[in-house]
Design a binder for these strands. Structure first.
Lengths: 349, 349
DNA sequence: CTGAAAGCGCTTACAG
DNA sequence: CTGAAAGCGCTTACAG
């Protein structure tokens, strides 16, 4: 493959370029058996007492040919794919972005190949994606923020795939979630303190975003209520808006609310940075907020928001600890479907 | 599997629960051959003239057992995986988030299964990830914003995998990129106009972020220079800072710059929203900007920034058009390694 | 120290 | 209308 006189690789001489090299090709070139090639390539050759010379020769040939083992075939034979799947709702905020990025890193560190797919909070897509991942033989499937985690756990169970939940808990597989109650309690206290110091001091807080059927939303609402109770502030139930997470929905919901009221809430609790987007638009458009800016606290840390506007309070979910807990569960024997709750943070990373 | 008297599914009676069902299991249950099951399941059964009754029976059995075909085996046999891989630098901004989300959607619409992996702008990780994807038999690999796209194209070539580049161009595979020159030209003009109207009016703009070796950075710099030339404003070369994209690096670079100067630049051109984070921190910390806020323009649209601060000008890269172009190239016969350049946008989505 | 052979779960040309 | 058989590229117990 290399010009003897110049030492340069000759164009077009790479063996069977385009056609994939197999261990049979390598075996023929090395004058050895496919078994030998296989064991050299997967590191079991010392055990098989193959000569170092042969191992060396095979390794060199593999390098020269950019040989890439066929994992489909390998996994089929070993009956283990080393694939780990993750379903994630969206890639549109820093929380899920960090989850995905760190998940990939930790999976690779454990010798697993991560497969991630985004299901846009669509229950049908979630099931479809789970099926696809199972078909692709993932050894384990993580459902992150899934609408119906138990449906996914069932699918996994009938295919012998290990299932786990992240961010939103299920009853059929172990779950790792944030302490949404605790985070909301602290956040609400801070918003109340912040708005109390404003002029004129604010009353109860408006709650915007999330789905009332979500575990995380109901837990955050519970923390929200308890913080109000502590402070002796009554909550008007019309002040809880849960139209989902999408910014357009939050925008509309808040716009409607403001249109029906004469004085604007002095403080707002927002369930996600995506929801925050819609809230900010509604505030900007409303006459009620002319010149004013309410106290705002939201779930999920966004570094750009922090850099731009120090007035907005943010709860940071502890992604590294969540993923650590997830992989710890994975290390351990397949346990019962308990829930691990990770405390939230409040300062900068 | 169902209790005859109650009609309810009995716990633990799902057939060989945990052990995956194969087409052989289904064949035995249906009283047919594995071949028949296979063709019913992959839709070729009309062609094989299998009876509708048998097809129906097999389909029902497959449903009952949550049968998921083993794609590894199927792909191995067909010598086609229908897997499409994408390498992406980071998940930490809306630009790449949108790319990934839309890529997944378009891939699925074409019957392909997307595999995405994030390589954190690390050249070694990029190559390692590309190898892994090739091993997993992707039919096609998209390198997005890769440091060395040609290295990846080479790896693909020697395994007969189709390669394409996105966001950053290469010379060995077709590339789809943004018109970084045009976008920077327009953005610079707008920043100049914005800062000219401020009091006191600003001079030349400070350029912050990117890698000077990046095609996109050099193109943006070219647009930046041309816009200055048009306006008859000379550029001081010390005003071009290209320490990379990471916010910490931009933060440090700008901090250093400000420490060495007596008056702060009235306007800043920022190469990405991540870089913007660092720029904002440096501005906040500097005495030179006390009370003032420079005119800022940046690449990449971030909806939260838009909602929070209307002063910041943003160029939006046209992700839908970029991906459309990418999939069009994919549809077409494997063409020559040309570059498709997509104009940038300037308004809200 | 090494190879021949069986088998992972599919698909498909071939032969009824 | 349907099945037996070969083979995709690996791995590994088994037999030298």
């Amino acid at each position: 493959m290399v010009d003897e006189t110049t030492g340069k690789r000759l164009a077009g001489t790479r063996i069977v370029s385009g056609k994939r090299t197999t261990i049979y090709d390598l075996a023929a070139l090395a004058g050895a058996s496919p078994s030998a090639v296989s064991s050299v390539l997967n590191g079991t050759w010392k055990k098989r007492r193959i000569s170092a010379a042969l191992a060396e020769r095979i390794t060199r040939l593999a390098d020269e040919h950019d040989f890439a083992i066929n994992m489909q075939a390998s996994a089929l034979r070993r009956e283990k794919s080393n694939l780990i799947g993750m379903i994630v709702p969206k890639y549109d905020n820093r929380y899920f972005g960090l989850i995905v990025e760190q998940f990939e890193e930790m999976a690779r560190a454990k010798g697993l190949f991560p497969i991630i797919t985004c299901t846009r909070r669509d229950p049908d897509l979630e099931v479809q994606a789970a099926r696809a991942m199972i078909s692709h033989q993932v050894d384990c499937l993580i459902a992150t923020g899934a609408t119906d985690p138990d449906r996914i756990s069932e699918l996994c169970a009938s295919s012998g795939v290990r299932a786990m939940n992240l961010d939103l808990p299920g009853t059929l597989a172990p779950s790792v979630i944030s302490d949404n109650y605790g985070g909301a309690l602290v956040l609400t206290r801070r918003i109340l303190a912040d708005s109390a110091s404003s002029r004129p001091p604010g009353g109860p807080i408006l709650f915007v975003g999330g789905r009332i059927t979500d575990h995380s939303t109901s837990e955050r609402l519970r923390g929200f209520r308890d913080a109000h109770a502590e402070a002796g502030i009554a909550i008007d139930e019309t002040m809880v808006l849960t139209p989902g997470y999408a910014q357009e929905k939050a925008h509309l919901a808040l716009k409607d609310y403001l249109a029906q009221h004469d004085n604007a809430p002095k403080a707002i609790f927002v369930t996600s940075t995506i929801t925050l987007e819609g809230v900010l638009h509604a505030i900007k458009e409303s006459r009620l907020y002319d010149g004013l800016f309410p106290s705002i606290g939201c779930f999920d840390w966004d570094p750009l928001v922090a850099a731009l506007d120090s007035r907005i309070l943010m709860v940071r979910q502890d992604v590294p600890s969540m993923l650590k807990a997830l992989f710890d569960l994975l290390e351990a024997a397949p346990g019962p479907p308990g829930i691990v709750s990770i405390p939230t943070l409040f300062d900068t990373p």
